[in-house]
Each structure stands twice: as structure tokens, then as C-alpha cells.
């Protein structure tokens, strides 16, 4: 791994974001809009006397963490789209940049996006709904790290599909993560799922993360079992998906798709 090359590719995205109002808006607009809507829903439920212990923490906390997953995935997948749209893939992969360095730079980009979005949402939730997520403290950190890794896994999967099938698959950069939302149990406990879906959900790291998050936010306990499961599953899927990406990259080189992917 050459740190200079990773930094080089990262600088290409930072130049882009510092200039592009549309891209900055994309980072901040939807998360803030989500927060406004879910904030009002939470207030309505409280006013209506719905008995839901820790409703604010339940919904707003879940929403902020969902955005961590979503932005981590987008950081990887949209970075690839940017290269595809600007027909820059040839410049990158005809340079000494390796596939591993490419992936590393997109993952760092996703950390930057997640940090920006999550910070803003936490400030917004604190100012408008008096919800201070920082009060929960470091016990949420393992879940946030696991969510970022889950986002990378979904992002790399999305990127490999876009690389293989071209522009017709680019909508997946925004849609793929929602495929995992129902079984990730973001806004409801896992027990509300039908038994068959519960079995599937236990194999998905975000389900453990959101279950664990609820235990931290509402009950104030640290669910070690969920952390261990989420970490183990994430490590397994991360190794599998990176190997899959290398495999897809080689298939694209064989089929000559790397030079045509933006067409």
C-alpha cells in the first residue's frame, strides 16, 4: 500500500467536494430532512401518549446511525461513479495505483462523509430536539465502527456490480443499502420480523448493530454478544467482498469493460 497514492486519489475527491455545491447539498440535505421528519413523528408520538420507552432515543438515534451506514456505503460507491462519470478510470488504473489502494481511498472518503454527516445530525438533534447523543458516550463507538464497515461492504458490493454492468446499474449506488434496511431492523426490534426473516437478519451485521444500539440507548447496557456477532460477521463479509471485488475487477479486465465502463 502506497500512502501517497491513496492520498492522491483522496485529494481528487476533496478538490471536487470543496467546489461542488450540489455534492455538499447531497451530503447534508437528505440527512437533515430525515431528521426533521422523524423528529416531528417522535414529538407526535410523545404528545399522543404512545407508550414507547425512550422514543426520542429510539427513533433519532436509529436515524443518525442509519445515516452512518448509508453514507459509509455511498462514500465507496459514489466515489466510483465520480470516476465513471468523468471517464477517469483509465487514468487511474493505467497508473501505478493498485486495486487495494483504490478501495482504501474510497473507504477513507466514506469516513470523511460519515464524520461530516453524523456531526451535523447530532448538532441538529441536540439544538432542535434536545437529544444529546454524546451523552451515551463511548459505548456506541463499537457500533458506529461496525456500521461503517458494514457500509463499506455494501459499497464495495455495489461498486463491483456497477463496474461489471456499467451505467445501467448506477442507481444501485443510492438503492442497494435500502435492500438491507428491512432486515437491519433500524426502527423496530428484530422480534417483530417473521421467523424466517429473523433467521436471515441474524446473519446481517447491521441487525446486530441496531439491536445492540437500542440496548445501549434505551436500557443503558452494553450488549457484548451483539458486538461480537457484528464484528465477526463484518470481518467475514469484508474479506469475502474484497476478494469478490478483485475477482470482478479481473473479469472486467478480461472483457475489456474497464475502458468502456462509462459508456
Amino acid at each position: 500500500m502506497n500512502v501517497g497514492r491513496i492520498g492522491g486519489l483522496l485529494s481528487r475527491h476533496l478538490y471536487l467536494y470543496q467546489r461542488s455545491f450540489a455534492r455538499m447539498l447531497e451530503i447534508f440535505y437528505w440527512p437533515l430532512l430525515d431528521l426533521v421528519v422523524w423528529g416531528f413523528i417522535t414529538m407526535y408520538l410523545q404528545d399522543a401518549g404512545v407508550s414507547l420507552h425512550g422514543a426520542v432515543a429510539f427513533f433519532l438515534g436509529a436515524l443518525i446511525l442509519w445515516d452512518v451506514l448509508f453514507r459509509a456505503q455511498q462514500g465507496v460507491a459514489v466515489s466510483f461513479l465520480e470516476e465513471m462519470w468523468s471517464r477517469n478510470l483509465m487514468n487511474l488504473f493505467a497508473s501505478p495505483l493498485t486495486v487495494g489502494e483504490y478501495l482504501a481511498s474510497t473507504m477513507i472518503m466514506s469516513i470523511l462523509k460519515v464524520t461530516a454527516v453524523a456531526s451535523l445530525m447530532m448538532v441538529f438533534a441536540w439544538v432542535f430536539y434536545s437529544y444529546d447523543m454524546l451523552k451515551v458516550g463511548v459505548s456506541l463507538l463499537p457500533f458506529i465502527i461496525n456500521l461503517v464497515v458494514s457500509g463499506w461492504i455494501i459499497g464495495v458490493l455495489t461498486t463491483s456490480i456497477i463496474m461489471r454492468f456499467g451505467q445501467q446499474a448506477e442507481v444501485l449506488a443510492w438503492g442497494m443499502v435500502f435492500l438491507f434496511q428491512p432486515i437491519s431492523c433500524v426502527f423496530y426490534p428484530l422480534e417483530v420480523l417473521p421467523p424466517i426473516l429473523q433467521s436471515i437478519a441474524w446473519m446481517v451485521p447491521p441487525a446486530h448493530i441496531f439491536e445492540g444500539m437500542r440496548a445501549v440507548l434505551i436500557e443503558g447496557v452494553i450488549p457484548v454478544t451483539h458486538i461480537v456477532w457484528a464484528t465477526g460477521l463484518n470481518l467475514f463479509f469484508f474479506v469475502v467482498i474484497v476478494a469478490w471485488f478483485y475477482h470482478t475487477f479481473n473479469i472486467c479486465k478480461e472483457k475489456g469493460m474497464l475502458v468502456r465502463v462509462g459508456e
Partner: peptide, 8 residues
């Protein structure tokens, strides 16, 4: 500059 960094 980006290219220069990619080529170290």
C-alpha cells in the same frame, strides 16, 4: 497535482 501524487 492528483496525477503527480498517483505517480509518487
Amino acid at each position: 497535482k492528483v496525477i503527480a501524487r498517483l505517480y509518487s
